[in-house]
Design a protein around this nucleic acid. Structure first.
Lengths: 231, 231, 231, 231
DNA sequence: AATGAATGAGCTTTCATTCAT
DNA sequence: AATGAATGAAAGCTCATTCAT
């Protein structure tokens, strides 16, 4: 599962990547919309290339081929355009297809593996952005709060899933659901961070998925074939 | 185990936190040594308070009660004094007391728990510094390289330990040692990062230790009492 | 002749005082042009007053009544604004009115004297700037190269003129044209440098012109009235 | 003759390169003398390598292998050590062997050529130092005054020599001795400056000597063989 | 006589932000 | 809506000079 989203339906209660209330209203005219979009795209390019810290607003406006004055028509500053970049990328970063709590528990292994694969692939697709997210979380308390809220929401979701696995006799009943969920989510997100965001590349995505799935199953006490424990 | 050090003896082959070649020679006179120490201490205080990015050299010299010129007598800039802070903290951050690869495998559970506890406590003691380390790794490629080298060295060390557990009949022989080691180390370091560095505080250190130990044992396929698998 | 320019037409092949490729594009708006001009004028004032070495950018911006930030909108630093000052002064420093190679050789004396007078007067008008040029040439290798290129181009031009004088029977045929041109150019430029740039003022401009013309004519073997040698 | 010295006897009335009154008394102890010498030698090395402007006192003390404190025991600052360097080099820069005013006028050509050769060779031997002298003269008014005084003294000396040549029937009686002397001295010093100090190297020393001698003889109206004019 | 740590004024440079056009 | 010139606080860094040891 990991700290990431599920299907559209299920992700409704998961906090977004950004505090959307801080973004201004979208421009009314089509021209304005185009300009804003160009700025967001340019900002993503520049942030990914230079990092959040080392990028300057003039780099962004140069990339967007507009003036610095125009930038301030749409955003209050670097922080806000960063939020807009994250909002635009949100849909792709929060991968689709995670099992819902009340989904069938048959084929637990397959479901878990698919979910982990979806997470890892989404992470890899947006590796630079994930690094940025991490970087900004260490700097800006606002973003840090969001990051924490998201991680907690995922852990709670996963904890409920683990509870169900325990109730149905799949998972080790001794485990405390929330801490276990926290630990297991952490494992995958950290591996992905190292391999893709920090670009260590000591494992392929597939190795990571296989390893994570195996360790999760073992850790939760689910037999490797995903069957019930005492079966 | 996790990505962190062990006893002095065992940590000999683990990369340090900083590229020591980049630090100047230590001052020869006692007075110089005192001043340098005051600067390093002041830098730690300021970095912990304001973060690496938001701290200024004048804050550091004000804290150390010396002039900015004196700072440049000992360091080339912010980067270098940061390296010195890390070097000074190194001994305490790399917690003591981890089991050596060829240590007895009796009481695997106790040994593992003690090791995890040592890691978590060292992490907590230096929580702000660990946040800094993470922050700087997202910014400075040099520090990032060191971070990666350290993580890999720990994973390899832990992989060797897992291999031994497999050979002796404690651990699931199907697991690939290196990826498993990576995953399990990641789990603990990420939990500690969230709880202590990002100050989420959703778990106490003790909960974290217990959870991690339990999940490791399960994940490696070691019975909860630390006995052999088929015993 | 000396190491200085002639009329626009003739000076086409003479290197300029500055490496123009190093100057940025001129500002597009009239307001920008005005500001830039004010900065160049202020820089000239400050350089002439304090010398290149002892002048500070803040003096220049104070004189131009703008902020230091504005300075950096137009120039990269002291070097570049110096180049701009020289470029602006170039037209006046490279005095007009020197005889072209294929000009009539009648009245050699008058022509030579007029040419020398034009040089000396232009030098005197820009005495402080000439001192600056000399100062910067001793410091900055780029400017030194330009200075050398200019001096050589002038010497070559003068050498061709001397050749013609030899061919037509005016000048001593034994002289080697290039070294002779070099020596005679040097004489006038050094005298002007001492009297006007170093402010020795041991000769008036007119004395200098008369002396130089007389010595040139003698040195080249041309009779004092400018007639042919054997006439 | 050019603006440079003659034999010890004749140079008695020529100003020195430095204002010796500004130098402190020499150290009394042999150890002190050695240290001071080392500093002067180091300063020359550093000045020649980096120029006056770009050299720092710490470079000099590093080169002399002593502390910056020691430097201040012997000199008041950069200016003063520069004066000491010049004083030490003075003997070699002011070449020996120039003809005295009341020397025989037979072999005028040989005498003049020898004198010019001595000047050019001395200039070339100390090319970097001559560049320094020029550089400092554009910056420091004290040094400028000395430079001017020296040039004037030489010109006056040469003017007296020219007068004698006129009286004895060698030189063109129409020439004004002082301005002519000024012009001819300038010629050689400027050529040497360009070729050796600015490192243009477009003439060899020998070409320069031959050219200068020939132009002087012509300019003064002395027949190429050095005989009397109407002879 | 020699040391070298400490000083801090003084300079350059950056860049988010404003605002008149 | 768009422009981009102007701003100036803020930060980094240098180096001649002092002085206690």
């Amino acid at each position: 599962m990991s700290d990431s989203a599920t299907d559209t339906d299920a992700s409704r209660d998961i906090p977004t990547l950004v505090d959307e209330s801080r973004l201004r209203d979208l421009p009314t005219t089509p021209r304005g919309a185009r300009t804003r979009e160009a700025l967001v795209a340019a900002a993503r390019t520049v942030f990914e290339r230079d990092g959040y810290i080392n990028s300057r607003l003039t780099d962004i406006t140069a990339e967007a081929k507009c003036s610095i004055g125009t930038f301030y028509t749409y955003f209050d500053g670097k922080e806000e355009v960063f939020a807009a970049v994250m909002q635009a990328a949100q849909h792709d970063m929060l991968h689709p297809g995670l099992p819902h709590v009340d989904e069938s528990l048959e084929n637990v292994r397959e479901i878990l593996e698919a979910s982990n694969r979806a997470y890892v692939e989404a992470y890899q697709r947006n590796a630079r952005l994930n690094l940025l997210l991490e970087q900004v979380a260490t700097i800006d308390p606002e973003f840090r709060k969001l990051r924490i809220a998201r991680a907690r929401a995922f852990a709670e979701r996963n904890a409920r899933w683990i509870e169900r696995l325990q109730e149905e006799g799949y998972a080790d009943p001794e485990l405390e659901p929330y801490p276990a969920a926290r630990g297991l989510s952490s494992m995958l997100s950290r591996m992905a961070y190292h391999a893709f965001a920090l670009e260590e590349h000591d494992m392929t995505a597939e190795e990571m998925v296989r390893t994570a799935t195996r360790l999760w199953l073992n850790a939760l006490g689910i037999p490797p074939d995903g069957s019930k424990r005492d079966a």
